[in-house]
Simulated scan of single mutants.
Amino acid sequence: MTADLFDLPQARPAAHAPASPVSLAEGAVLLPALALPDASALIDAVHTIARVTPFRRMETPGGRLMSVAMTACGKYGWCSDRHGYRYTETSPLTGASWPPVPDIFAAVVRRATAAAGYPTPPLQSCLINRYEPGTRLSLHQDRDEDAPHMPIISISLGVAATFLWGGLHRADPTRRLRLTHGDVVVWGGPSRFVFHGIAPLARSFHPDTGECRFNLTFRQIHP
């Protein structure tokens, strides 16, 4: 069951203006445009990371290629192949450690964590997803981490996307939220295991990313 798409017009600020948080559920909040003042620096850092550890489409345990291309930074990166889903301290592509979390990433995550009312930022891992027209991420829960008390921070950059926000059960109703350049979503506490995903990305253009959308997702892997 899916609710209608809505754009939260009351929460859309002018460029670089402060925005009021929008509650999604207990422990979950949308922070419209919170990352907008730092968006260019964030995108530059993404490109720097990708030059060291390139984006790649991973294989699911069932043998299919994921439509979203991924890379990572931090102590841990997330991997998927026929052996399952897991976090690793080295890139399977390069054999080297993942690049460190850039200072600009950490600064925005700390700001978002504080704005959402959580005491500690999740900075052990940043997963970077690159969406192109038609790519999607199915509804799922983030359960591969051993620190469920820590929130997840998600930063949207580039082309707008439809964020699917469900409940704690796959069959729960799903809301469709339009996320635009610089938006940040934080979820934890009672909402830590909410099902979520991204609908197929519509063809569009953003001056900073072309037809692509980048999503930075920060997690704590171990306590």
Rank of each mutant, 00 (worst) to 15 (best):
T2M: 15
T2F: 14
L5A: 14
D7L: 12
D7S: 11
L8G: 01
L8S: 13
L8P: 01
Q10N: 05
R12Y: 10
A19I: 06
S20M: 13
S20I: 10
V22G: 03
A25Q: 09
A28Q: 07
A28R: 06
A28I: 08
A28N: 02
L31P: 11
P32C: 12
L34G: 00
A35K: 08
P37R: 09
P37W: 08
D38M: 11
A41G: 11
I43S: 07
I43F: 07
D44R: 15
A45M: 05
A45F: 06
V46G: 04
H47W: 14
T48R: 14
V52N: 01
P54N: 08
F55H: 03
R56G: 00
M58Q: 15
E59C: 06
E59Y: 05
T60A: 09
P61V: 13
G63P: 05
G63Y: 04
R64Y: 11
R64N: 12
L65T: 08
L65V: 06
M66W: 00
A69W: 09
T71M: 02
A72L: 03
C73Q: 08
G74I: 04
G74H: 11
G77Y: 03
W78G: 02
C79F: 01
D81W: 07
D81G: 05
D81C: 05
R82D: 09
H83V: 00
R86Y: 14
R86W: 07
Y87K: 01
T88G: 09
E89A: 14
T94L: 07
G95K: 10
S97K: 12
W98T: 09
P99C: 06
P100H: 12
P100W: 04
V101E: 04
A106Y: 00
V108A: 05
V108M: 08
R111Y: 00
T113L: 05
T113G: 11
A115F: 01
A115S: 11
L123G: 00
Q124N: 06
Q124H: 03
C126I: 01
L127M: 09
L127I: 14
L127Q: 09
N129G: 15
R130E: 11
Y131I: 00
Y131A: 02
E132H: 08
G134P: 02
G134C: 05
T135G: 04
L137A: 07
D142F: 07
D142C: 08
R143Y: 00
D144I: 02
E145G: 02
D146K: 13
D146T: 04
A147L: 06
P148A: 06
P148Y: 10
I152P: 06
I153T: 11
I155T: 03
G158F: 03
G158V: 13
G158D: 03
V159K: 04
A161T: 14
W165N: 11
L168Q: 13
L168D: 15
L168T: 13
L168A: 14
P173M: 13
P173T: 13
R176P: 09
R178T: 13
R178H: 14
L179D: 05
G182W: 00
G182Y: 03
V186E: 05
W187C: 07
G188Y: 02
G189N: 08
G189R: 10
P190T: 10
S191N: 10
S191H: 04
F193R: 14
H196N: 11
A199I: 06
R203C: 14
F205E: 15
T209K: 07
T209R: 09
G210F: 15
F214D: 02
N215R: 11
N215T: 11
F218P: 03
R219M: 04
R219H: 04
Q220E: 10
H222L: 07
